[in-house]
Every structure is written in C-alpha cells, then in structure tokens.
Amino acid sequence: MDSSAARRELVIPGDVIETHGLKPGEGTYVEGGKVFASLLGIRSEHGGYVDVIPLTGRYIPRADDDVVGQVVDLGPSHWLVDINSPYPAPLHATESPWRVEFGETSHFMDVGDSLLARVISVDETKRVQITMRDQGLRRLTGGQIVEISYSKVPRVIGKSGSMISMIKSYTKTQAFVGQNGRIWVDGDPKDVIHAVRAVHMIDENAQAAGLTDAVEDYLAGAYGRKEG
C-alpha cells in the first residue's frame, strides 16, 4: 500500500495502464497486448499485480466476506437474505444457529429482520450461499444500520481496524462492519448518533487526506476530550 501511495493515479474506463512488468489484475482488461482500465478507480500495485481499485460500485459477494443481511423472503427450510448486492443469498436452515423444524423458519427470523452472516461460497453464475454458524454471527436486535458505498468499507475499518476501533472507543458503541457496505451500530442512542456521523464523514470524504484526524477531531469535539 505504502509503495503505491506515491503513484496514486485516477483512471477511467479505457485508460491505458502501464504495468511496469506486473500482471494485469482486477479492474483491468487486456486487448491487443495492452492493459486497460475497466473501472473508474485508483491504479494500485499489490502482490505482483496492477489493479484498479474501484471508487464506487455495487457490492459483489465473495467467499469469507462478513455481511449484514436482511431477510426479504422465507421458505419452509430457508430464508432469502438481501446482502446489498444484485444477488439475494439463500440461508438454509441447516446454516442457522438454531434447530429449525420444516416450515418453522418464521419462528426464528421473519421478513424485515436483520442478521450478521458470512458468505460461504459464490459460484460461476454468482449463486451465493451464506451461513450464520460461526462465532458472533446472529440475528440482530436493537441498534441501527448505516449503508455506505461498499468501496469505502476499507476506510471505515482503517489500517488493522484502527478507524473503527477509534469510533467504538470514543462512542462506547458496539459495531459490526459488513464487507457489503452495511454497518451495524448499537449503544446509547446519543452515542450511536455520533458513531453514525463519523461513518458518514468517512463515506463522504473517503479520498481526503487527513481523514483519520478529521474523524478524531469530530469525536473529540463531541465528547470534549481526546483519547490517549
């Protein structure tokens, strides 16, 4: 990341990408021996590849992503979960934390309920499987969900989780950042408001320099102190 920071270059679809001997990665395509950007984004070099990191776009699920989902439909042995992507994800009763008898899915979760889940697999045609069978994955009660552009999720998390840790420590809230651009925050309502404002600040100013300081200034101002 640090080495590429010096060459942060904005590209648009169709721009020629100089590879400097690296392999063409995500957000690029090859035609006539040349590499082009297929997305609006930032040119980035990582692990021997040159990628275009998108600035915007819908969330496309990948295996092992943690997501915040919402039940939009149910069947006798599964729930259909919206994960903020073009592809709703079925959650089979066997992948839930409960022993669910056939036809009793609604006793555990109903349409409109929110949950934390993990993507198990995504096949060629983008059929998605998700699970709730792991620690911390559960049906959500209380709190609120903020939706941001999924491409800004890394900024909300920050380097090794530094940004979200700072928000949580100032506001004394619980938070779960879904890779799908949904962030669940729970705590005292007035603290939740500050946490949500901080997330919105990041969403709106994700490309700005000094973002961490700006967010910390906001939180320090709101709480009248600076964390050590």
């Binding site: 919402q70 919206d82 309920d113 929110s114 959500l140 609120q144 969900i145 309502p189 408001i193």
Partner: peptide, 24 residues
C-alpha cells in the same frame, strides 16, 4: 422495498424522543 424492522424500531424510538436521524 422491504423495510428493516431494526431501522423501523430505531426511527420510531428516535422520533418518540423528539429527535430525528438527520439531526432535525
């Protein structure tokens, strides 16, 4: 659009306490 129950409850609580999500 299916409305999240969690968000519904959140907004109901917020407005009942005289507040709104956008600070008004």
């Amino acid at each position: 659009e299916v409305i999240s129950e969690l968000m519904r409850e959140h907004i109901v609580k917020l407005v009942a306490s005289g507040k709104r999500a956008d600070g008004r």
